[in-house]
Each structure stands twice: as C-alpha cells, then as structure tokens.
Design a protein around this nucleic acid. Structure first.
Lengths: 336, 336
DNA sequence: CCAGGTCTGTGAACCGTTCCATTCTGTCAT
DNA sequence: ATGACAGAATGGAACGGTTCACAGACCTGG
C-alpha cells in the first residue's frame, strides 16, 4: 500500500520528477549533489521503479521469454541456463514458460509474453506457430526458434541436425550387428521426433537386411518410455527388436527400466541394444550406462539469445539458421 | 509498429473506449450486438491488450513469480509443474526464475518480480530473504516460502520436514548394520542441506557406536557429487565410510558414478551403501537403483500456490506453515 | 403523462514513468 | 555590460488501458 512513487522521491529530495528519472536513467545529466539527495530519498522511501509504468512509456521491456517443450527434460533446462547466462551478461532476464508438450499451454505463454511486451521470444515450438510469431514480429517483438531446423521459415533458428543425429544413432546400431531396430518415440508432430525417425529411416534404408519398426509413445517422458518398454517385454522373445533407438533419453531411461528391472531377464545390450538422445547428465549413471546422441544444449541457448538480441536491435536483419552437429556418445547400452 | 490500441478498436467498432474495456473485463455490462462488433474489430485489427498499461492502472498483474534453487534439479521442476497446474486453473501464469544456487541471481529475480508487480512470489530461498519479502509485502505482494520450514518467520511456508527426512535415511542405514556414515552435501547455508544433516546427526546420536562425517560439496549437482565420490574412492579402503547419505539425488547420482564406474571396484551396496534425497524419476533407473527419501514435489507446488492466492486475496491472513512428511523409498543401493 | 428504475454506453480522470522542449543560472569572451 | 552558450533542472505531454460518475433511452406503474 505504502508503495512510493517517483513523485514522492522527488518531493523528499526537493527536486522535480524529471530529475529523479534522470538520476535513474541518465546519471550524467545530473549534478553530484542533486543525485546524492535523490539517492538518499530513494533509500529512505524504499522506492522501487514501477515496471509497468516504465514499460508503458518505453514500449518494450528488458526481459525475454523462453518457451520450452518440457521443463522436466534436462536438455531444456540446460538450454535455459545457457540462455539465462548470456541474458544476464546483457542485463536482461529470462522468463521461462513450460509448454509441457501441450498446445494450449504453449499458446497461453505466447499470449502472456505478447501482452507483457517482452523484448523477444525464444521458443521450442510444438506445433506451427509461424502465424503467431508473425504477429509478434509485426508488433516489434523478435522471435527465434530453438531446437528446430526451421530453414523453411522466415524466423531465425538454432538447432541441431536431428536427421543426422538419427542416422548417427542407427548407423551405430547397425555397425554393432543389429538388424531389427525399433524406434520408440512420439508424438510425431514434434519436429525433433519426426526428424530423428527420418534419420533412422535413411540409415536403415541403406542396409537391405535391416528393418525399422515404430513403437509410438504419447509423450517424451520416463513414464511413457516405461510403458513402451513393457509392451516390448510382453512380446514373445522372437518378436522383439534387437535394438531400440529412443527419441530422447527420458524415453530411453523408461525403456531401460522396463527391460532390465521389470522385464523377465532381458539383457541390455545382450538381447537388446539401447541408445537415447540428448546425453543428459543422468544417462551415464543409468543402470546400464546409456549410449546417446549429444547436443550442445547450453550452447544452443546462448546462441539463440545472441541472435535474438541482434534481431531485436535491427528487425530488418535476415533470418539466420544455425545448425549444430550432434555427436555420438557410446556407452555400454550398445555394447560399445 | 502497427500495433493497435483500444482506441483503434473503439473507433472501428463505433463505440467508446470504455465499452471496449467493458467487453474485455465485464462482458455482462455490454449488449450482445455491441459486444459482437467489438469482437469483430479486435479480430480484424489483431488487437492484443497491453499488459503494462493494464497493470499500471489496475495495480496488480495476473502472474506469480517462482524462484527455485536450481532449475536443473528435477525436484524443482516437478514442484514448478504442480504450481503451474494450479495457477492455470485460476487463469494465472507462473514465471519461473532460476536462482541457480546463486544469491545474485536470486536477488535479480526478486528485483524483477518486484518491479513487474507480480501478484505474489513463491520462493525457495538460498539465503535470508525475509527483509526483501517484508518489503514486497509492504507493497501488497504476497510471498510464500517453498521447501523451507520457516516457522520462525512471518511468511507462510510449505515444506517437508527435512530433519525427519534425514533421520529416516540414516535410521535406515543404521538398521542395515552400517556404522560409519558420511553425509555428502553442501553448502550448509542452504536450509534443506543443514536440516537433512541435522536429522542425520540426531539419528547417529542415538547409536553410540555410529559415527557421522561430513564430505562437503560446493553445490547440489551431479558434478559436485562425482567429485566428492572420487575423493572417497581415493582413500585407503579402511578409511572409507560404509554408507553415504547424499543431500539430494543429484549428488547421489554423482557419487554413484564415481564409486561404481570410476572407482576401483567399490561395490554398492556391498562396500558402501548409498541413499539420496528427493526420489527423482531417474533415481530408480540408476546403475544401482537408488534408495531415496521421497518428497511430494508437485503437491508442494500446488499447495504453495493455493496459499499464495489466499494471501493475495486477504493480506491480513496469518502465516501458515504446512509441513509434509517425507517417505523412505528403499531400493538396491542400500541393500534393501 | 410523468416519476422512478433499469440498461447501455460515454467521456474524462488517473496510474507512474520517460522524454523533450523550455527555463533558469552562471561563466566567459567581447 | 551584454550576448552567447553550456549545463542543470523543470513541467507537462504522452503511453494505453481501467474505472466511475453520469447521461440517454426505454420501460413500467400510478
């Protein structure tokens, strides 16, 4: 209630409102003694700038919004930390919204950020958000797609080549002598999932005696992976794949739990080799250390923020598309 | 640039600005046909409310801020999801700030939320933030401490009894016949760490032949745990503890990696039993499935948000302190 | 036919800041 | 002494909504 405004500060310091504002924003324009008095008044009154008023006048804020697919996926929190780190260097803050693999949530955060007038939006989109982003851009808000190879769009993007990643994973499985590959992943309207699967297809396509099946899951979570793993275990041994490529490490961890712990003695990699994607911190500590495809998560976040800031500065800039290459990490789960 | 204001909408719909505002905020006060025209105008113009202006006038926003200790800790992301879920039910949004076990970051987010005039703040504090929260409250912003048993303070809190949790863990280790317990955790100015350690002390104190040592770590991360684990492995076998209680599962996973994979054949639980804290999703999929102390993370988030909303409604409400009880989860890492 | 009431819709004040044109003060060269 | 000029401080106009007292329009019952 007793929150004081810039007017109160001005009155107490015996200067005008404009001077207080100058102390805060253009200190060089104010003489030493006056600035001193203003600072004292601010301290005494516990004055805090009203961000709403500030932003209303200024037209834009100093925060950027980041919407991730799933905040419980360590890949995204690592990415978020990368972005935050870079933002902090520029005196900006990152507001993290959890899309939760849910279009409504994604849309709600987009609304929120739009209303809040953030400087820019970093988004790892679930569906097609170009229309929404187009509108944002029209109002002067920059947007960069993260973890999405969006060369089709007019928005900059920072991503990892997921097709190459899928290839890398399945080439490795094939090199280990596996032939009946199962891709456990979904939903397929998530671009990363579709791309990783596509990479797997390409790899399998070049081996005439290899086959690829799809075990669909409803979400990229440990729980969903566990369920998929159980469905594999329930099959007669002869009908099981001899290798599983999971769309991400969360799924892979779930599959692993089902195979090794609940499964009737399925051996990994003996009976079924397993490889995940993202190389999260926990992958190497799994019951069978998990092979994976590593993405430079923090670097993606940092890079995306850099691009966002450049575009916020100069909206006329052409869209750029940074694509990082994934890296194969071999551990015991593929019998490396 | 071409962003349209409520005045543009009013002009196009042939009504006054007041009416447009009513359509948006008090639909019952506007007749059908007029509301229709306004909605059409909003659609045509792609009008989006300016949150800053809205909030400036209204004095409060519809977002709550959540500051967590470390966004990479699954415990906190689960908690965040619980809070988000409940917030969504009330048409609110949660902005997630990553304190990153760093006082500056924590403070920066507090500043940000204060300037933004959020409805309330949920915080899992690193240091002593009561002075800051006191000021927030003076300006009409509610605050609830999460994962912190703050009965000493005048702020509501939702937490888990960490002393009981520490007891639970070490009682279990003692029951398994272990006597030389090491507590791996830090920094101790994090209340949860101190409390879990205290619980361990209490437990050990009632067993005359048991001892407790502390292996301090600089942060609650997998990396820090790994380093601590390595330091244990490097000791002569006789000087190693026969059980490790890790301050959280991240630490435990790191210790586990060091002991089992890099260590010279240290067996878990054969040589050293290991128990963590939080029971994150990954704990059960660890190389040796990890015993842990489970906290109802999502429930904590939901409850904290409920309390926050009640206090935001009625600031005169007395502070409440909800304390949940932790639950022991026994898996192989303690030879259960 | 009019007093009184209910609905709709109006218009202007206001929120707290920033920005800018303007005024004031003092210094200095002419 | 005066005009020019720089630096410091001022005052008021935005910014884009929300709110509220009030005005018309329309109905109803006496």
């Amino acid at each position: 209630m007793a929150s004081s405004s810039i007017r109160d500060v001005a009155a107490r310091a015996g200067v005008s409102v404009g001077t207080v504002s100058n102390v805060l924003n253009h200190p060089s324009k104010v003489s030493g003694p006056a600035a001193e008095r203003v600072h004292a008044a601010i301290r005494d009154l516990g004055f805090v700038r009203n961000g709403a008023a500030r932003q209303l006048r200024a037209g834009r804020s100093s925060t950027v919004g980041l919407i991730v697919l799933d905040v419980r996926n360590p890949f995204f929190t690592d990415l978020a930390r990368g972005a935050e780190e870079r933002a902090a260097q520029s005196g900006l803050s990152v507001l993290l919204g959890n899309g939760d693999e849910n279009r409504d949530r994604e849309s709600t955060y987009l609304d929120l950020f739009e209303e809040q007038g953030v400087l820019g939006v970093l988004i790892s989109p679930l569906g097609d958000v170009t229309a929404r982003l187009e509108r944002l851009r029209a109002r002067g808000t920059a947007a960069v797609l993260v973890d999405r190879s969006g060369d089709e769009s007019r928005f900059s993007s920072v991503s990892v080549d997921d097709i190459a990643g899928g290839r890398l994973a399945v080439d490795h499985l094939l090199a280990q002598g596996r032939r009946r590959i199962a891709f456990v992943g979904g939903p397929f309207d998530i671009r990363q999932v579709a791309d990783r699967h596509r990479g797997a297809e390409l790899s399998v396509g070049s081996h005439p005696d290899a086959s690829l099946e799809v075990v669909p899951v409803p979400a990229l979570t440990v729980q969903a992976g566990r369920a998929a793993g159980q469905s594999i275990v329930r099959r007669p041994a002869a009908e099981r794949p001899d290798a599983v490529f999971a769309a991400n490490d969360l799924i892979a961890m779930g599959v692993l739990q089902a195979l090794v712990m609940q499964g009737g003695g399925v051996r990994v990699p003996g009976d079924i080799a397993l490889i995940g994607y993202d190389d999260i911190d926990f992958a190497s500590a799994a019951v069978v250390p998990l092979s994976s495809v590593r993405q430079p998560s923090a670097l993606i976040g940092r890079t995306a923020l850099d691009i966002l800031l450049e575009e916020a500065d100069d909206p006329a800039l052409d869209a750029r598309h940074i694509v990082f290459q994934p890296e194969l990490i071999v551990r015991e789960s593929t019998g490396g």
